[in-house]
Amino acid sequence: MKRVPSLVPYGSSDEEEPALPPPQKKRKLPALPSSLAPQRPVDNPALHQGRVRTTPHVEGQFAAYVYVPLRLDRGTPLSRLLDDVFAFAKDQVPSLHPIGVQEILASTGVTTGEHELHISLTRPVYLRAHQREGFKNAVRAVARAHSTFTASFAAFAELTNDERTRTFLAVEIGAGHSELKAVSDALVPTLRSLRQKEFYSAPRFHASIAWALLADQAAVVTPPSLSTAAGIELDSSTPLRSPVPTPDGTPAPLAESASETQPQFLGIPHFPRDLVQDVNKRFGARLVSRQTSIFQVDEVCVRIGKEVSRFKLG
């Protein structure tokens, strides 16, 4: 007889399978503290005497410009002259702010500290991070290709920026204009390669010494926030167009709906009509005197963000 192999027993399909444990929920990572989060600059005019950023902030983009610096120690003839001019102009334009002065005594309007005036050679330039070093190298090369020269101031003038947000009291260059233009023109190929605007075709080289908000741009803003980041100051002044006939240039009131608790920044339509003429009559002879006006141009600076690089002329 053949032996029948034993059958392998199988469990019944009716038997229950062992239950699996429930899946565990994934834990969320804790949020980064706010101190580690990237801070985007906030345009708060309250931090900048009512000035408004005319070019929106772009992450990874750096504002830059090239200029000739003029540092003046306190007590020098030109420094004393600029103090006197500012005090005279501020009597007629109370909303006037000085440029290039480290400290101002608010009670008297008298300036203290050191002056550093800037004579712009470019408009504001906007660079990506990887373009900064190349731009500095280009400015360095241009500086080496030009020699030290003598310059002087010729007259006071009123200028306004391209966006017509501010008006400036400035001193215009006389001698040295052609040398400054040669340096500025040498930067054009670099600006074109970066797709940036060139300087003005007929530039009026100058150093701005004071500014005021224009009336149509006067701002009403909330008090400054502790988390607000400050922006940089750029001066790209161009000749003022013929002013529209207006009153005497006194500050224009803001909208009545503004809260009385908010800082108010008063603007003017333009400087009083006779201000620049009076400044030139009263201070022009001092400005063009040999001991006051003449200075040496021996370096070119480039400011990128908050970093300033200085390059000696060849």
Results as ranks from 00 to 15, higher is better:
residue 249 G to W: 02
residue 162 D to L: 14
residue 73 D to G: 12
residue 6 S to I: 13
residue 118 H to P: 02
residue 194 L to I: 07
residue 173 I to F: 00
residue 228 T to C: 09
residue 2 K to Q: 11
residue 152 S to A: 09
residue 314 G to E: 10
residue 95 S to E: 12
residue 184 S to K: 03
residue 214 L to H: 07
residue 278 D to Q: 06
residue 268 I to W: 06
residue 265 F to C: 00
residue 303 R to E: 15
residue 208 S to N: 02
residue 142 V to N: 14
residue 37 A to S: 12
residue 277 Q to L: 06
residue 282 R to I: 06
residue 209 I to V: 03
residue 66 V to D: 11
residue 291 Q to V: 12
residue 24 Q to G: 09
residue 250 T to Q: 10
residue 184 S to A: 07
residue 263 P to A: 04
residue 313 L to M: 07
residue 228 T to H: 09
residue 91 D to G: 04
residue 254 L to R: 07
residue 141 A to F: 13
residue 205 F to N: 00
residue 66 V to C: 10
residue 13 S to E: 14
residue 181 K to N: 13
residue 295 F to E: 08
residue 273 R to G: 06
residue 10 Y to L: 15
residue 136 K to N: 15
residue 35 S to A: 14
residue 87 A to C: 15
residue 92 Q to G: 04
residue 200 Y to A: 10
residue 287 L to P: 03
residue 266 L to D: 07
residue 61 Q to L: 13
residue 64 A to Q: 09
residue 264 Q to H: 14
residue 158 E to H: 02
residue 184 S to R: 04
residue 278 D to H: 07
residue 198 E to S: 13
residue 44 N to D: 12
residue 183 V to K: 14
residue 36 L to G: 14
residue 106 A to K: 13
residue 151 A to Q: 07
residue 293 S to R: 02
residue 225 S to I: 11
residue 107 S to I: 15
residue 295 F to N: 09
residue 9 P to W: 15
residue 224 P to Q: 01
residue 117 L to G: 04
residue 70 L to M: 10
residue 244 V to F: 09
residue 7 L to E: 14
residue 253 P to N: 05
residue 25 K to W: 12
residue 138 A to W: 13
residue 307 E to H: 14
